[in-house]
Every structure is written in structure tokens, then in C-alpha cells.
Design a protein around this nucleic acid. Structure first.
Length: 384
DNA sequence: TCTGGGGTCCTAGGACCC
DNA sequence: TCTGGGGTCCTAGGACCC
């Protein structure tokens, strides 16, 4: 692969910053976004302002716990529709510079800057400053940018000087800048792998780089072990992927109070029917149908079971999905009470599904696929 | 009464086919 | 009677990410 300059652009405290745009009076206050915005109800913090983080509030933390840590914290409910609007705006602002953009969710992207004029000046920092300016002018929001020869290093770099930072990393920086960091900073090493590495005495990326590949392979398997070794040395050849098709869509909900599979059957059935209705609506809007319908249940001890069923033909019909989902739910063991129920459709294909002839032999008109109205040359879950 | 919702990818066994 | 391998699809679970 030839010379590359990859940027990872990460919006700073994205949800919270969007909320502050319409509630400027909260600027400077500890604010946490999550759930219904009521710490008395079930939910977790998705984003907190830097003032709230100073009190120890972290994303993923129960709202109740966050309120204990910081009683003066202001809690707001999540408003995904609004965040998606700002997501489209900041991505469109980047697209005025280049279309070599990989969507990585609502608040971050990778950008291949290799062919952008001036990118070889000062390691690309002036181009990154220009990107920050474009994003801020379009949204009023700040972001942090990592610059590196590949996605792996760019992602690590963007975290190093948040908020508002620009961090360039090259091969010759790896030993000094990357190796002292904990292994968890590598995108792809999560809590489980982190724990197992710690049991092997490996805490830093440098220690991981020094570990014999054979030892990593023995503990983590050929594929994952080899990958960890490469990652620790900062090697990553993955290309920027500018377009992708969804693999699955799902809807799920956590109950305010746990439900029993048999005693609360009616409530569960109503919930499942509603989830199927919403999911069918999502499929319709985006112009997809799917062959595999499945349910997901989370017990009160947080164990998860899934059951699914594959149809001969793809469907986007709520009644069909409901029928299959009920069959799947009937195979879920009534071991404990449930705290979550979800429906998923996979095996997606584009366009209206073939409609079956009705009883009179009349073929129903196929529904028109929802118009694709992405504003950008790339598509992803955040560009419905 | 800790622990959301929407995704991707990988693994592994059994069925089934050639 | 003994002995084969792929290859693909389906299902279930799990790790990880935003």
C-alpha cells in the first residue's frame, strides 16, 4: 500500500454538546444525557459534559449512580433525532473537503486525506485545523482529530488531546507515544481481552508488542493473537470504506420492571407486537426486507438468549415478523424474569420484497421502497 | 432494586450437498 | 464392513464498538 494519511475525527461530548446548543444557560454546568433523563428510572449515561466527568460521571454508568456522585448534575433525556441531524451536518461539512469518508457511527468518522492538497505540510496538522473550522462553522461543535498512517493509530491519536486536540502520530512515534498506553486503548481490545492480558502480566501496548506472538496465539487463537501482535506494533492495512449496506436492523426495549415469561405473557406479547411494528416501519422507510427474524431476551441476571428463524423469502411485513417473533419467543426458556426484549431482522436485501398472491389470487402492489435521501456520497446507519 | 439501544464480526456445531 | 473431504447455510452465543 502506498503512502497514506488517515484522520480519525471524533466529536467532543457529542450528545451533551448538541444539547448545550439549545440550552446555553447550562454551559459550564455538569450535564449528563441518558435514558429518560430521570435518575429514578432505569437508564445509563450516554454522554456527560466535561464538568460532569470531573465528578466521576462516565458513560455507561447508571443514572442513579451518577446522581449520587454529583447531586447538582442536570439530567437530560436522549434525543436521537436531533443528534442525527447534527451528525449529517458535520459529515456534510467534512465532505466539502473530501469524499473519502468512512462513517463510524453518529459521532465519528475516518477520513483518507492522502490526496488532499497540502496534506504533507506539518504532518497534516493545518489540514486538520481546516477540518475543525469547517465542522465548527457548520454545527457550532468541537471535535478532536488524530492523524496517522492508518486507522488504528489515528483512532488512538484522536483520544490523546481531547477536547479540541489535533494529534499526529507517525511510525517513529510509536515507541514513545503508543507503547506506554494501556492495551485497552486499542480499538478491538475490550474488557474481556484486557482482563486476560492482565492475567498474563500485559498491561501496556509496549508489553503487548514485546510478547512472543506464539504466546499470544496460544492464549487467544491464531487470528486474534496475530492481530494483537500487529496492532501493538501500529500496523494496520485496512482501507477506508466509503459505502456499506446494513446487515441487520433491530429494536429492543428494557422494561421499567422485570416481566415473567408466563405470568406477564400478555404484556410481553403487546411489547413484541409493538417492536415488530416499529421494526417493519424502519425497514420500509429505508427500503429493506429481511429473511431472518429473531428475538433477544435479557434475563434479570443479565444473561442473554437469542432465538431466530429464517424464512424462504425476505419480508418487511409487520404481521409476518410478529408471527415468526412469537414462535421464537416461545422457544426462550422461562428460566428467570426478563428485563429486556428485542426483535432483530437479518439477511437484509434491498428493495420491496416479493408479495404473495392473496386468497383471490390477486397480487398486491409491491410497496415502494422508501426514497433514499442520504445527503452524502456514503451511507451508513446514521444516514437513514 | 447499578448496568440503554443499535450495530458488526467471529466462532462453532450440525445439516446437507457434492 | 472401512473410510473422505470440502463448502455453504442455519442457529446460538459472545466480544466489541458507538
Amino acid at each position: 500500500m502506498s503512502w497514506r494519511r488517515i484522520a480519525h475525527l471524533d466529536m467532543d461530548a457529542f450528545y451533551a454538546s448538541v444539547e448545550l446548543l439549545r440550552r446555553p444557560e447550562l454551559r459550564g454546568c455538569p450535564v449528563a444525557i441518558g435514558g429518560h433523563g430521570e435518575p429514578s428510572r432505569r437508564g445509563v449515561v450516554t454522554t456527560a459534559t466535561y464538568e460532569a466527568r470531573a465528578s466521576g460521571i462516565r458513560s455507561g454508568m447508571a443514572l442513579r449512580r451518577a446522581a449520587e456522585l454529583c447531586p447538582e448534575c442536570v439530567f437530560l433525556p436522549v434525543d436521537f433525532a436531533e443528534y442525527r441531524r447534527y451528525s449529517r451536518r458535520f459529515k456534510a461539512a467534512i465532505a466539502t473537503l473530501t469524499d473519502r469518508i468512512e462513517d463510524r457511527g453518529i459521532d465519528e468518522v475516518y477520513i483518507d486525506l492522502s490526496a488532499v492538497p497540502g496534506i504533507r505540510v506539518e504532518r497534516g496538522v493545518p489540514v486538520a485545523r481546516d477540518l475543525q473550522r469547517r465542522v465548527h462553522e457548520a454545527t457550532g461543535l468541537g471535535c478532536s482529530i488524530g492523524l496517522a498512517p492508518n486507522k488504528l493509530l489515528a483512532k488512538i491519536a484522536s483520544e490523546l488531546h481531547k477536547p479540541g486536540g489535533i494529534t499526529a502520530i507517525d511510525e517513529y512515534d510509536i515507541a514513545a507515544v503508543i507503547w506506554p498506553l494501556p492495551v485497552r486503548r486499542i480499538n478491538g481490545i475490550g474488557p474481556k481481552a484486557d482482563l486476560r492480558l492482565e492475567e498474563l502480566g500485559i498491561r501496556t501496548i509496549g508489553a503487548l508488542a514485546a510478547a512472543p506472538p506464539a504466546m499470544l496465539i496460544a492464549h487467544f487463537g491464531r487470528s486474534f493473537g496475530q492481530w494483537m501482535h500487529e496492532a501493538a506494533h501500529g500496523r494496520d492495512q485496512r482501507p477506508i470504506v466509503t459505502a456499506s449496506e446494513p446487515v441487520s436492523m433491530s429494536r429492543e426495549t428494557t422494561f421499567e420492571h422485570d416481566l415473567h415469561l408466563r405470568r406477564d405473557w400478555q404484556a410481553l406479547a403487546a411489547c413484541l407486537a409493538e417492536l415488530c411494528r416499529e421494526l417493519a416501519g424502519d425497514l420500509h422507510r429505508r427500503g429493506y426486507a429481511g429473511r431472518t427474524i429473531g428475538v433477544k431476551a435479557r434475563y434479570d441476571d443479565f444473561r442473554i438468549v437469542t432465538r431466530d428463524h429464517t424464512l424462504a423469502l425476505a419480508t418487511d411485513d409487520a404481521a409476518t415478523m410478529r408471527r415468526v417473533a412469537f414462535e421464537c419467543l416461545s422457544r426462550v426458556p422461562a428460566a428467570r424474569r426478563l428485563r429486556l426484549l428485542g426483535v432483530r431482522v437479518g439477511g437484509l436485501s434491498r428493495g420491496a420484497p416479493p408479495r404473495q398472491a392473496d386468497a383471490a389470487g390477486v397480487v398486491a402492489a409491491p410497496s415502494l421502497a422508501a426514497a433514499w435521501q442520504g445527503e452524502l456520497p456514503f451511507s451508513g446507519p446514521e444516514n437513514p
